[in-house]
């Protein structure tokens, strides 16, 4: 990993140079929400945000994605047009450590065993620039999963704001490519900056209430039935907020859009395991018929199933579900219930 820095005074110029070359996606203010959007002016980028309203997964796994175009003439003549190209190369800037980790958690779902062409291409063509947190929100709990709020894991290039400089860590080959394409990084000894980064890490970690996960997986491995599921399911409205704002949730549905004259497209769109029809079969049988099974499935997925399957965390502690749940269903409180054996 090569390390260097960018002077703050030349930072915007560097971003501008990126924007000249690639579409630049970064956190911006949009109608009161901080969202990852294509940037119009570099000045619009919000550098000191807490957490974006929606996770960056949309860049790799859009909420609604066309898979192919269909021309169907009375089911006798069929033509399918698969898109030649799913996306152009682009730069995703300003991703915090929890969200970086979430991309790594999605990768094995989409890129191993039947690699997903759409995801893979978007992933291959996106340069990810990470940005260390400089403050924590009350809902942050990344440290529970062993993630530091300044971790570069998952980024191609990672930045940390320190005084009048940004420490630059070039993490991957792709990062090298980006650094080579966009000059501006000064590769000099960064020992001092790294020490400062370590201090910042400790500062931000100190602002995060530590959630201890010791024993949680073990309890879930042993117990499928726990009274706490019923207790929390009672409070659940069965909406899809938690799954849609979650950076690691990856469930989707596949549907056809039909213009009426046989022309249409097949698309996939996000779906939610919280919805009552999610697992309901055409014949009416539903393996997860009530909110209890659905709530349990979501949290088991976050805390156990994803780990079992891919050996990587299924929750990164971004706190979005905690912020947005209309009835304040808080995964941190559920963890504490699991540990308490409730």
């Amino acid at each position: 990993m090569r390390k260097g820095y960018i002077l703050k005074e030349s930072f915007k110029t560097w971003l501008g140079a990126i924007k000249e070359k690639f579409p630049l996606i970064a956190p911006v203010q949009d109608d009161g929400l901080t969202l990852f959007k294509e940037v119009e002016k570099v000045d619009d980028i919000v550098l000191d945000y807490g957490i974006t309203r929606m996770p960056p997964k949309d860049l790799f796994f859009p909420q609604t994605e066309k898979m192919f175009r269909i021309k169907n003439k009375n089911n006798v003549a069929i033509e399918l047009e698969s898109p030649e190209k799913v996306t152009d190369e682009l730069v995703l800037f300003g991703v915090h450590s929890c969200d970086l980790k979430s991309i790594l958690a999605l990768d094995p779902v989409f890129t191993t065993r039947f690699p997903d062409r759409y995801y893979q291409e978007r992933r291959d063509k996106t340069y990810v620039i990470g940005l260390s947190c400089t403050k924590a929100l009350p809902t942050c709990f990344c440290t529970a999963y062993g993630i530091n709020p300044t971790d570069a894991d998952g980024a191609d290039v990672h930045l940390t704001e320190l005084g009048d400089k940004y420490l630059v860590e070039v993490v991957t080959e792709r990062g090298e490519k980006l650094a080579a394409a966009i000059p501006g990084i000064i590769f000099e000894d960064t020992t001092n900056l790294e020490a400062e980064k370590a201090k910042l890490t400790e500062k931000v970690k100190g602002e995060i209430k530590f959630i201890d996960l010791t024993g949680v997986k073990e309890v879930l491995d042993e117990n499928f039935e726990l009274p706490l599921w019923e207790k929390w399911a009672q409070k659940c409205l069965g909406c899809g907020i938690c799954t849609y704002v979650c950076p690691t949730c990856h469930c989707f549905d596949i549907n056809d859009f039909n213009r009426g004259d046989g022309v249409g497209e097949r698309f996939r769109c996000w779906d939610s395991c919280m919805f009552s029809d999610f697992t309901r079969m055409a014949g009416g049988h539903n393996p997860r018929p009530t909110k209890k099974e659905r709530v349990r499935n979501r949290f088991m997925h976050k805390l156990k199933y994803h780990l079992d399957r891919y050996n990587i965390v299924g929750c990164v502690g971004c706190g979005r579900c905690v912020q947005r749940c209309p009835e304040n269903i808080d995964i941190r409180a559920i963890i504490s219930d699991i540990k308490g054996g409730v």
């Binding site: 109608d31 929400l33 409205l237 069965g238 909406c239 899809g240 849609y244 939610s272």
Partner: peptide, 16 residues
Amino acid sequence: DKQFEKCIRCYACRNV
């Protein structure tokens, strides 16, 4: 249009 464009179809408005 600006408002509806933002909608993520989570159905929370319906469920509540």
